[in-house]
Structure formats: structure tokens, C-alpha cells
Design a protein around this nucleic acid. Sequence first.
RNA 1: GGGCGAGUGGCGGAAUUGGUAUACGCGACGGACUUAAAAUCCGUUGCCUGAAUAAGGCUUGAGGGUUCGAGUCCCUCCUCGCCCACCA
Length: 832
Amino acid sequence: MTRYNPKEIEPKWQRIWDETNVYTANLQSDKPKYIAMSMFNYPSGAGIHIGHAMNYTISDVKARFKRQQGYESYHPVGWDAFGLPAENYAIKAGVSPQESMATIIPGYHRQYKAMGWSNDWEKEIATHVPEYYKWTQWIFSQMYRNGLAYQDARMQWWCDKCQTVLANEQVIDGKCWRHDGPDDPMVEKKEVKQWFFKITEYADELLEAVEGLDWTESVKLAQKNWIGKKSGIEISYEIDNANQKCNVICFTTRPDTNFGATFIVLSPEHSLAEHLANGELAANEGSDTDAIKEYIRQATAKSEVERQQEGRKKTGVFTGLYAVNQLNQKRLPIYIADFVLAGFGTGAVVGVPGHDLRDFEFAQVFDLPIERVVIGKDGDTSAITKAEQVQEESGKMINSEFLNDLDIHDATKEIMNHLEAEGWGKKVVTYRMRDWSVSRQRYWGAPIPIVNCEKCGQVLVPDEGLPVLLPELEDFKPSGDGRSALARAKDWLAVDCPECGGKAERETDTLDTYICSSWYMYRYFDPHNQEKIFDSEIVKKWEPIDFYNGADHATAHLLYARFIARFFNKIGLISEPEPFKQFLFNGKVTAKDGTMFSKSKGNGVDPLEVIESGYGADALRTYLMFAAPLEMWARWDPQGVPGTYRFLNRLWNIIYAYTETEKGASTQEVEASLLAATHKMVKKVTRDIEENRYNTAIAAIMECLNELYKLKAKSFNKSETWQQALERIVASVAPFAPHIADELWLRLGHSSSVHRDTWPKWDEKYLVSDTVNIVVQVNGKVRANISVPTDADQSAVEAAAEADPKVQEYTQQKEVHKTIYIPQKLINFVVG
RNA sequence: GGGCGAGUGGCGGAAUUGGUAUACGCGACGGACUUAAAAUCCGUUGCCUGAAUAAGGCUUGAGGGUUCGAGUCCCUCCUCGCCCACCA
């Protein structure tokens, strides 16, 4: 008998699959379509790790399952090749990113094939090739033409020594992360022009459509939170002691607490703060302009990371100004403080220290009055409780005055209506989400198809001019002036204006790689189209993506992809506004101790090593899918793969034993058991894969195999029943362990692959047996187990149960008050 | 601080609408085969009392409640994980 040797059969089948194109999807097929995919790979040079093995096996199992069920199943493959890590890797390796991709990607091909993933290689895509990024640029052009792309100057951190912009995270204690010595300068804020996509215009529809998605709940929630829609009101407060007539507008979601307002706080970036600092605006009694100036200088010099640290002691400066609260005619002193963020609401808040912890802390520092006005029916927020506690400790009076008996929600609405009716406020809706910044000052990305003409200004590159090719450079490090390396590519930079033909210069920013990855799923359906982004007819046949999974990008990528899909839908390219019908946010794989695998710790597990050590891809795949539910984080257990290897080995052995046994017939009892065991298994596996419960699907196959071994001991021979039982189990294991499945399928006498149109069906009639097991309880405790005919009625079951000696032990001399009978399951005597 | 999720054997984890808790796998132990080991195969394996494969009791983070019956439903609390966070 030949032994199970994955090292031999796996490469063999991988070769056969390649040669026979089993996994090539016919996009024109009349079969029902199915597309399952995982978020595509970012080729970094390190090769695939165990997390990739997990992700891609999940969608591969799904795609294989559907292919076996008779669907035209498509499992695409592609590379998210642009971006900073690839650029940095190339810089380190001393080659161009183009060259490094040309060597890295073929390496990934070998690894993907070694994992046995059923990718359609004919339709492979990569985002860094001109054939692809031409259309990434085209999307930018379409956004521009539809008024959804615009350029705007925003304040950015700037390090004079580096001559480059810094991200917030790179600013430490007001200094550059690379230049934080005592003699180094503080970083400055500098205005930098950036391109944006108006995703905020789609905020409402993106939010509303979340509810209807068949997505992992936590991701749906993250999407909602990210969009962060809030209804509130902007209340206008007139300033009554300024040298000019003016007012301040504050945003609040809780105007019902406004009776307790005791002050107003402006962010240091607020326009009134600016006017106070330059002396244009002052209180009639005089404002301390120097103090205001100094405070603003200090506040704006702090990094946002630093400013937004919770629990930091509140600071601020009084402006000398007072505003009037029209609800109760109280005068509110106005302060400037850095805990108020410029980017949210109006950049000014009304201080209600009785109902807001931050306001309370501020009031403590400046000794401002604290008033409580609303007590909700179901208590109030912890902020108030804490405020109260501190007040009691400090012995201050609480002015507790009930607004009314309404709950907070109703009170809020009523006050909003009142304020709006009086003309003191305006109801507004705010979003946490901002427009999508799509320009990057780096080399390795798709150039933005814009030309800056001396005469015409900003001009879009006409579609005939696409793609704007990314020039190959010797040196692709940033240019140091805040622009990408492209600023040094003089030949490339100089261009004739598409409108007037005059002297012009290309845009040197490149597009954010999130754009590349926000539309790739559609390119999979028409990867080599030179004329169009894709053929809408094919896409309309294949959209939406039936199954999508990944362990990252719960917000940004998925939100951007939804935005782009909605945009495509509006311009008539596709007919479904949502790109992903089902999304599974799967867990990651961690080290045995629960910590993340990391290169620095050197605790990584290389899937290729596991395969080559002799266990093979099938055992690895099966283990990964078996270890835990897909949405849970799994811990890597070195003993796990040997376990699934043993299981596959047992499957191998029973089939080899079968093909070497004599022809014959089994007993009726064994035949019935074979049918029952395999049909039951097929039913469970079919449902479990359908519902993404791969771990229990595999357990069911293992259980079935154990059962077959028991039956084998009773009666084993070449017969129709055994043949079918073994075919069923091989077909069921095929999505998880495709190589051994094809090998054993062949061994069972088939000439074509197990991977197409072989999924077994189950028949309920084999699942019902003549007798059924009934649990007998006395007062809820299990006392016996009886076997009764399946069609026995209650009185028959009761009689059989009462006849059981064990049951009698507990019921004799006692009165049965009640009998609970659950057909086919349980009978419970309540005695007393 | 807010939101979400999870606590079940030595370990990863099962458990349809409330109905035999611990499926399946790992590990451990015993046995077969072998000169020996590995591999493979067979058996045992929640905990406690017990000589026991007799019998009984206990058990799903803690405590209460509803019910004939609770891992599952309700209340209170504890622990851990993830995401968001000075967002007014």
C-alpha cells in the first residue's frame, strides 16, 4: 500500500491544475456565478506568513465549495503593489521599486501555488503596472469632472531640518522625531496643498446602507462610528461688551443642559481668538492681548497628539469678553482653551460644568460656577456623578433645578425646537468623517493626472493622455521640499499645457494607494481591457462580490471601496451600489502565548516550512480552518498540524484499504449506518461552510471518518454503498484539503477532478432511524436513557420510561405531579 | 471614559428555538507492533468520594432570579480582549 506523502502528491496536483486550468473562471458561463476573495496582498518581500495562509484559505475554501456545487466560481488574485512600505523596501535593497516588484511577485506565485489556492492566474492584476494605474488615474479624472475632487491648503507639520512634512505621530514634544535634541528647532505648521475626494458628500448614504449589509457586526459598527453622524444645534450667543458687534456660535448635542451654561470656550484656532490676538477685537474694559497671544502660540505649538491627551490638566486664558445666554439672560465669560478642537463643530463650545466632565475640570481650574439642571429619568452620565462627588468633597453648592419630567431625549428635542423658533439657533448635522486626502508626496504611486499651466492654471490631463507614466528614476527618495522625487525628474516634469499648448508642469503628488485598492475587485472581471476601465456588461453580470474577507481595514479601505462603488453606480458603470455582499472580518493568528507574531521576536511561523517539513499544505490548511471559529483569533499550536495530518492519513488509509479489498456486500445494518453517517455529515458540512463555520464542518468530517472505521471493522468490501460513502467523504474534505482529495478521487476510479460539480447532496430519509433515544429525567435530573420506536406516542414513551428500574428508584412512593414530554428528545417526571 | 465582544476540562474549542454540557482535535496515561525509538493502530481521559468500567455528588467567571429544566433568558458584579476617544 502506498503511504500518504504530501511532498509527492501536492506538487503533482498543483502541476496538473495549472495544465488543465481547473480554476480558470469562464466569465461568460451560463452557470450561476460566485466570486469569493480575500483582501489582496501587499507584496513586501518577506513572503507569505501564517496570517496570509489563514486569510486566503478562508476564501479559497468558499470558492472551492461553490465550484463543487456547480457554480462558475471565481477566486481572483492580485497585488496591491504601490505604497510606502514597498518604496522603503526598495530603498533599503538598493533597487528601484519596479525591479523589486519584478522579483518579489514571482516568488509569491510559487508560494500561493504551494498553498493549493485555486486562483485564476489568467486574470491576475497588479496595481503598479501602467495597464492598471491608467484607470486609477481615470477615476481621479472622473472625480474631478464630477466635482468630487478638489485641492485645498491644509496646515501640516514641517521640520526645517528634514525639509519635509511630518505626520502628527512624528511630532514629539513639539520637535521632529529625528531632531529632538536641545538645540533642534521646534516644528512649525506650514500650509500644504493637498488633493481631496469629497467622500463627505456620500456620508449619509454610506451610513444608511450599512444596516442592510451581510457583514461582521463589529465592522458595520466601526463604519457607523467612523462616519460619526450627530444631530445637534448651533447656538448663537451675542457678545455684549466688545468694541464691535459680534457673536459666537457654539455646537452642542445637549441643548437641554444649556440652562446650566456658565462659560464659553473657544479653540485657539477660532477666528475670534485670532482677532483678539491681533488686537482687532477687544473687550470694552480691555483684553490682555499679550496673554492671549502667548497662550495661542503655546497651544498651537503643541502636537495634536499631545493636546488631545485625556486627563491632562486644563489650561486656558480669559478673553475679557462676555456673551449672553438668551435662555436665562445669564452672562457667560469667554475663554480660549486648547482642549477645544478646531476641527469639530464650530470650534467653540458652551461650558456646562454640571453635566460635562471636561467642562467641570475647566471650571475647577478657573473657579467658575457649577450648576446642575437636568436629571434624567434613568439617572445620568458618569461625568455628572463624578462631578457631584468632587463637588461634595470640595463643599460647593449644587444648584439642582429640574427642567421637567421628560427624559433627556425629549427634553433635547423640545429645547432645540424652542431655540430654533426663537431664532437663537440652527439645527445641524455633523460628521466625524472628513474628506479623503488622496495626495501623497512620495514617488511610488500613480501620478495625479493634473498639469499646472502658467496661463490656464490647473488642467486635467485629457483621457487620451492617460496613463501619466511614472518615470523610472535613479533616486526616488523624497525631494526634501515637501514634494516627491518626481519634482527632480525635470524631463518628465516639463509638459505642454493640454489646453493652450504653453509651458506647464506636471503635478508631483501621487495618489494614495487606498484608491488603487478601492476598485480592484471590478478590474478582476476585465483585467486587460485597454479601452475602458472594465466592460460594464460583464461586471453587471458578476457584481457584487459574493464573499469577501480580511483581518484588517475595518474602516478606511472598506469605506473607500463602498464610496467608489457608489460613485461608479452614479456614473452608470455598475448597477449595484454596494461592492461586497458578504464580508467576514476574520481573526488573526497569534503565537502560542497570545502575542502577535513579529520579526523582531523571531517567533514567526513560515507556512512554507510547515509544508516542506512533510505535513503538506492540506494538513496546514485544514488545521488553520479547524483551530477556531473564523472570526476568532487563533493561537498557533505546533501540535495542531500533526493532528490534521493524522486525520488525512486515516482518510488515505481507509481508501487504499478499500481499493485493495474484495468485492462483496455488507450487512443491511452496516449499509444503513454508512448511509446515515455520510448523509448526516454532508448535511452538516454543507450548512456549516455556507454559514462560515468551517471548524465544525471539519469536526463533522472527522467524526464521520471515525464512524466509518467502526463500520469497517464490521463489514468492509467493494460495494456500491462503501464506494458512495467514501466518495462523499472525499468530496466533502476537498475544499479544505484539495490535493489529497483529487488523489483519492482518482483512486476511487474517477477520471476528472473532484473540484468541479461533485458536491454531494443529502437525503433526509437516511437520517431518520427506526428507534430514537429518549432522555428520562426525574425532577430535571437525568436518570435513564431509553430507546423507543421513532413513531411511539407519549403514552408509550411514558410507559417505557416508568418501566425503567432506575427511574422507578426515584419515582416509587412518590406522586408524579407533572410530566413534561418533548417528542424525540426527553421526558421529565416532576415528583414531590 | 464610551462602544462592542468573550469568560466552558490540562489546552484549542462543541452545544439548533431553553431539553443528555464538555462534540471534534491536541496533550496525557495504558496497551499492541518493534531489539529500541519514531510512525501507526487499539483503549482510557471534566472534577470529587470510591478498590471499582458499582454507586453517588459536583461542574460552563462570581452571586441572585425566572423555569419541570439555564452554558443559553433576566438582574447585580468581576476579569480579559478589541475598536474609538478631551468629538462638546
